[in-house]
Lab assay of single mutants.
Amino acid sequence: MAAGGDHGSPDSYRSPLASRYASPEMCFVFSDRYKFRTWRQLWLWLAEAEQTLGLPITDEQIQEMKSNLENIDFKMAAEEEKRLRHDVMAHVHTFGHCCPKAAGIIHLGATSCYVGDNTDLIILRNALDLLLPKLARVISRLADFAKERASLPTLGFTHFQPAQLTTVGKRCCLWIQDLCMDLQNLKRVRDDLRFRGVKGTTGTQASFLQLFEGDDHKVEQLDKMVTEKAGFKRAFIITGQTYTRKVDIEVLSVLASLGASVHKICTDIRLLANLKEMEEPFEKQQIGSSAMPYKRNPMRSERCCSLARHLMTLVMDPLQTASVQWFERTLDDSANRRICLAEAFLTADTILNTLQNISEGLVVYPKVIERRIRQELPFMATENIIMAMVKAGGSRQDCHEKIRVLSQQAASVVKQEGGDNDLIERIQVDAYFSPIHSQLDHLLDPSSFTGRASQQVQRFLEEEVYPLLKPYESVMKVKAELCL
Rank of each mutant, 00 (worst) to 15 (best):
A3I: 14
H7Q: 14
H7E: 13
R14W: 10
Y21S: 00
E25R: 12
F28D: 09
Q41A: 10
L42S: 03
G54C: 09
I62P: 01
Q63C: 09
M65R: 01
K75C: 09
A77V: 15
A78K: 12
A78T: 13
A78L: 09
V88Y: 00
A90H: 03
T94R: 10
F95Y: 11
C99Q: 07
P100R: 09
K101V: 11
A102E: 03
A102Y: 00
L108V: 09
L108Y: 09
A110M: 02
T111P: 00
S112T: 01
V115E: 04
D117E: 01
N118F: 00
I123L: 13
R125K: 14
L128T: 13
L130G: 09
L131P: 04
A136M: 15
A143Q: 01
D144A: 15
F145Y: 07
K147T: 11
K147I: 09
S151I: 08
P153H: 00
T154V: 08
L155R: 02
H159L: 01
T166Q: 11
T166Y: 02
C172G: 10
C172P: 04
W175G: 02
L179I: 12
L179Y: 05
C180S: 11
M181R: 05
D182W: 01
L186P: 00
G197E: 04
V198D: 00
T201S: 04
T202D: 06
L209W: 10
G214R: 10
T227V: 10
K229R: 05
I237F: 05
G240Q: 05
V247K: 09
I249R: 01
E250V: 06
E250P: 07
V251R: 04
S253Q: 09
G259L: 07
H263C: 13
H263G: 08
I269R: 06
K276Y: 06
E280S: 02
K284V: 12
S289A: 03
M292C: 02
N297T: 02
C305F: 00
A308L: 06
T313E: 02
S323E: 06
D333I: 00
L341H: 14
L341C: 15
A342W: 08
E343M: 05
E343A: 10
A348Y: 01
T350F: 03
L355G: 03
L355S: 14
V364W: 07
K367E: 07
R374V: 06
F379P: 06
A381L: 09
N384T: 09
V390N: 01
K391D: 02
S395P: 02
D398R: 11
C399W: 05
E401W: 06
E401G: 10
I403V: 11
V413C: 06
V413E: 12
V414E: 00
E417W: 08
L423M: 13
I427L: 14
I427E: 06
S434H: 11
H437S: 10
D441G: 09
H442M: 12
F460I: 05
V465G: 03
L468A: 12
K477M: 11
E481Y: 12
L482A: 13
L484H: 15
